[in-house]
């Protein structure tokens, strides 16, 4: 009973905040609603017994990505004026398309018979995760670190003011 309540609450918060993100007229308010949506998704992870992913979600998405986005919005302040239209001409068509996609996806979810196995999570998932990352997935892990380095260098190069 309690998990169902938590699921209901966090999914309502997540979806409501996500809707506010894409429809709010003030782009800065959208950014703060985005943070609320991230918190909702983190609570979904806790419900799925993945505390590591939940904490990393808070750390990376709220601690880094959301703050960067808020900061970027503050730096481009001219676009915060109230009379600026934030949605383009094709918004009606996009809404229709997104709703259609949602219906199709929902139909697929309910028509497929998922091979659910009710197993328990390993006792110490973090050490298992570390071993997996450095054995089975060591090549993607290294590539991810190269990607991060490239992004770091690229962001500095692009963002730098040229004399």
């Amino acid at each position: 009973m309690v998990p169902v309540l938590i699921f209901g609450l966090s999914s309502v918060v997540t979806l409501g905040a996500a809707l506010a993100v894409v429809t709010n007229k003030n782009i800065l308010h959208s950014a703060f609603y985005l943070i609320l949506a991230f918190v909702g998704v983190a609570s979904i992870y806790v419900l799925l017994e993945a505390p590591f992913i939940a904490v990393v979600q808070v750390l990376v998405y709220i601690g880094a990505i959301a703050i960067l986005i808020v900061f970027a919005i503050m730096l481009t302040r001219r676009l915060l004026s109230k009379d600026l239209i934030q949605r383009n001409a094709q918004w009606g068509l996009s809404a229709l398309g997104a709703t259609g996609l949602f219906l199709v996806l929902g139909w697929i979810v309910y028509s497929v018979n998922w091979p659910v196995k009710l197993l328990t999570v390993p006792e110490d998932p973090i050490s298992v995760l570390g071993q997996e990352l450095l054995s089975t997935y060591v090549v993607p892990f290294e590539i991810a670190s190269v990607l991060l380095l490239a992004a770091l260098v690229g962001a500095i190069l692009i963002g730098r003011e040229r004399e």
Partner: peptide
């Protein structure tokens, strides 16, 4: 998850502000 994905998709397709589009991608 499907709902969240479609809301994000709507955001990407309908926003004019590049930062708004990025927020949709994050969703």
């Amino acid at each position: 998850a499907a709902g969240l994905f479609c809301i994000g998709l709507y955001g990407v397709l309908s926003r004019r502000n590049a930062i708004g589009i990025l927020m949709g991608i994050e969703l």
